[in-house]
Every structure is written in structure tokens, then in C-alpha cells.
């Protein structure tokens, strides 16, 4: 290779690198707001993967496109290309580099998962390999807020055991570690708040503990993320992250309220269709009665 080729290659690689770094910055805009401490860790990891991925993608497709544009044989050229059958050096290089990348990505992901500690701090401690196992946020000083989550076809209910309050929207205090005890009454459901980047299946007859730290006040959406039958799509709930004062005020008010059946989309939709006599498609499991919740 002469100097000209090498400098051209250096320029091309730097350009791809710059483009990839730019993509890595763009990656943050493809995601919902960062409303939990965990979401920041996940987004940084995702952005890193986007940089790496963009660089590889640009390299491979760039080479292919360049070849397609410049190396077409003319119509009457019936000769063959050079009979290159392989190159041990190249093959070793493109085996070893991906292996190293895999170790890098896996190691980084492991570290992030450990820091998230969403299944409790002890979750993967027995395969601890010297990575710092701290909570995602500086939330370890705060007391943990315990909330029970009950999923059924197709409604969410949240129970605050200390105040004996049940609601159909999830209120959370900002900057405090939350531990959910989740269970399902019928089928598998999934607890998913996109703004928190967190997801966990909820199994019938089993309680699964799940932890995280909301860090941004606002209203977010909770979805059922594991297909749960006919009205799966409308099994949603609002998530309200509030300041600690607001939160405790809300708890005190709502604890005084009477218990009434919650407003539930699936239940309403099913009954409206029945009343109007709309042919309800194929037979479906009836939505369970909406949970009884404290009036706020």
C-alpha cells in the first residue's frame, strides 16, 4: 500500500468514526425521557452499542456499495476476477477482534446489570467478579418504599401495605428506592414502564420482587408487556412520580377515601360491546371485575 491509499483509509475511518459518534448522540433522542436512575445506565449502554454498531455497519455496507459502484464488469468482459481463496492473517484478525468486542460488550452489560440491581442487590452476587455493586442512584441511604402489584386480566392494582391503600394508578416518590412485590391472579403479565427502561414478567402463584429508583417527576405509562389475551392492549396504568411531600399527602388523603370499583378499559369495552349487541368476534375470556380502589 502506498502513502496515498493509507491516508485515504485513515480519512475514511475517521469520518466513519465521527459519523458513528454522532449516531451515538442521536440514540438518546430515540428513547423516552429518563425517569429512573436505571434508565440513565441503560441509555449510556445503548448509545455505546449504537456507536459500535454504526461503525461496523458503515464499514461493511460502505465497502459493499463501493464495490458495487466501481467494480462492475463490462458486458462483454467474460474474464474472471483474481482467484484469491483466502488469507489466514485476515481471517485471524476478523475472528479475534469480534471475540474481544464480545468480551467488552458482555463485560460492560454485566456491570450495568449489576448496578441496576433490579432483582435486589444480592441477585447475581455469587458470580461477582470484582465489579462495583452499588445501587444505580445514591438512593441507598433512603428507606425503601414497598408496594404490592396485582395483575389480572386486564387490570392493574397497587396496594400500599402500610397505609392499606389500593389504587389503579401507581404513585411513586421521586428519588427513593421502590421495591415492588408483584403477582398475577390468572396468566403471565409483564410490568413495563418505558420511561424507566424496566420490565419484568409477573407470574401467577409466585411473588416476584422488583426494585428501581424513579428520579424525575411526571406522569408516565405502565404497559402489560407479556401477551395476556384479548384485551392485552388496553391493560395500561398511569404512573405518577411525585415529590415526597406530595406523595405522602396523597397517601393520607386517599387512605380516607371509600373503596369503589376502579374504572377499567377492558371491562368497559367488553360490557359496552355486549350491551350494544356488537358481535364480539370470537368468544373471549371475560375481563375480571375491576379492583376495588380507594377513592382519591
Amino acid at each position: 500500500m502506498n502513502v496515498k491509499t493509507i491516508s485515504l483509509l485513515v480519512v475514511l475511518v475517521s469520518l466513519s468514526l465521527l459519523a458513528s459518534l454522532w449516531m451515538g448522540q442521536q440514540a438518546y433522542t430515540w428513547l423516552p425521557p429518563q425517569a429512573s436512575a436505571e434508565s440513565k445506565l441503560v441509555d449510556d449502554l445503548f448509545s455505546f452499542l449504537v456507536v459500535l454498531g454504526s461503525f461496523i455497519f458503515l464499514g461493511i455496507t460502505g465497502t459493499l456499495l463501493y464495490t458495487m459502484l466501481t467494480q462492475q464488469a463490462s458486458r462483454f468482459d467474460l474474464s474472471d476476477g483474481p482467484p484469491i481463496e483466502g488469507s489466514v492473517t485476515l481471517e485471524v484478525v476478523w475472528t479475534v477482534i469480534p471475540v474481544l468486542l464480545v468480551f467488552w460488550i458482555a463485560g460492560y452489560s454485566y456491570q450495568v446489570y449489576q448496578q441496576m440491581a433490579i432483582r435486589g442487590p444480592m441477585d447475581i452476587v455469587h458470580m461477582h467478579m470484582g465489579t462495583p455493586s452499588a445501587y444505580a442512584a445514591a438512593a441507598d441511604a433512603e428507606p425503601i418504599e414497598e408496594i404490592d402489584v396485582l395483575a389480572k386480566q386486564w387490570s392493574w392494582a397497587f396496594h400500599y401495605p402500610q397505609q392499606n391503600v389500593t389504587t389503579s394508578e401507581l404513585h411513586l416518590p421521586v428519588d427513593r428506592r421502590v421495591r415492588l412485590s408483584m403477582t398475577s391472579e390468572d396468566v403471565i403479565h409483564g410490568f413495563y414502564i418505558p420511561a424507566f427502561r424496566l420490565k419484568q414478567d409477573i407470574l401467577p402463584k409466585r411473588t416476584i420482587e422488583f426494585e428501581f429508583t424513579p428520579v424525575r417527576e411526571g406522569k408516565y405509562r405502565l404497559d402489560d408487556s407479556q401477551f395476556s389475551g384479548t384485551y392485552f392492549a388496553v391493560m395500561q396504568a398511569d404512573v405518577l412520580v411525585e415529590s415526597p411531600e406530595h406523595y405522602s399527602q396523597w397517601l393520607t388523603t386517599v387512605a380516607k377515601g371509600d373503596r369503589v370499583p376502579a374504572v377499567n378499559s377492558a371491562y368497559t369495552e367488553y360490557n359496552t360491546r355486549q350491551e350494544k349487541g356488537i358481535r364480539p368476534g370470537w368468544p373471549t375470556i371475560k375481563p375480571a371485575a375491576p379492583p376495588l380502589v380507594n377513592q382519591g
Binding site: 465497502t63 459493499l64 458495487m68 468486542l101
Partner: peptide
């Protein structure tokens, strides 16, 4: 993630096959 290694080997081999060919 390890699957990416033998798969990557294939992709690179395809690119190298096309490279300097008479397309």
C-alpha cells in the same frame, strides 16, 4: 453474543469475496 463471531466471519468472507471481483 458469541454467535456473532462465526456469523461475523461469514459476513467478512462475503465482503472479501465480492472485493476486487468482476461484478
Amino acid at each position: 453474543m458469541l454467535v456473532a463471531v462465526p456469523t461475523g466471519v461469514k459476513v467478512f468472507a462475503w465482503v472479501a469475496t465480492v472485493w476486487r471481483g468482476k461484478l
